[in-house]
Amino acid sequence: MSSNSAIRVEHVRKVYDGHGKSFPVFEDVSFEVKKGEFLAVVGPTGCGKTTLINLVAGLDRPQAGNIYVDGVNITKLPEDVVSKLRRRKLGVVFQVSNLIPSLTVYENLELPLVFLGMSRDERRRRVEEVLESFWISNYVHRKVATLSVGENRMVSYARAMISDPEILLLDEPTDFLDPLTEDMMVASFKGKILKGKTLLATTHRRKMAKLADRVINLKKKLP
């Protein structure tokens, strides 16, 4: 495998189990994302885009196959080791918000940095940098529970970027955004914020797919 590869998915099989039945999502998926590349994943609802993001983030395990993140095979590592790799290298924007509602925006942004063991001052510096880039300064001290859905999305995006990760995994990142904010976010993909970063994004939107260096199409597995 070339050292130029940021993400490499090899012959991955994923089946969900539930109530004695099994639901296959994919039998054999393979692809690669080069460092600095922007790969968009498109496909119909239920085809497994979110599942794929979870697998690459190490939040779930495949039944077969290998997934390499920055050259490391995360399917073979203990979970805590994958967690440590994730906090250093990966930023994830989830399709369904998973900020902590009882904490403020500021505290939510701080959280990944706490896990990285950063001091309070370092954390403040990082958070302030990110606030400017993501147009969220106005509500930084509000509880996340009080945010609008679009605001929530922008904070999720900022949280994914807070530790300056090399690789970003974005699951429908522009859902819930108005066209103007969507444009701003999409522009940031090409602008200086994401310069040099590797992007793997799922999307239903043409605007984003057009921006990608490459697009792959996941087919829906028929039962």
């Binding site: 983030a57 939040l59 979970e79 805590d80 967690s83 440590k84 994730r86 906090r87 250093r88 994830v92 989830f94 998973n98 900020l99 902590i100 959280l111 990944p112 896990f115 990285l116 949280r159």
Partner: peptide, 16 residues
């Protein structure tokens, strides 16, 4: 459960 999932997603170890 919810908070636990968020912590893990952000890279916290089980010990922490």
């Amino acid at each position: 459960d919810y908070d636990l999932g968020v912590y893990k997603a952000l890279g916290a170890t089980r010990e922490t």
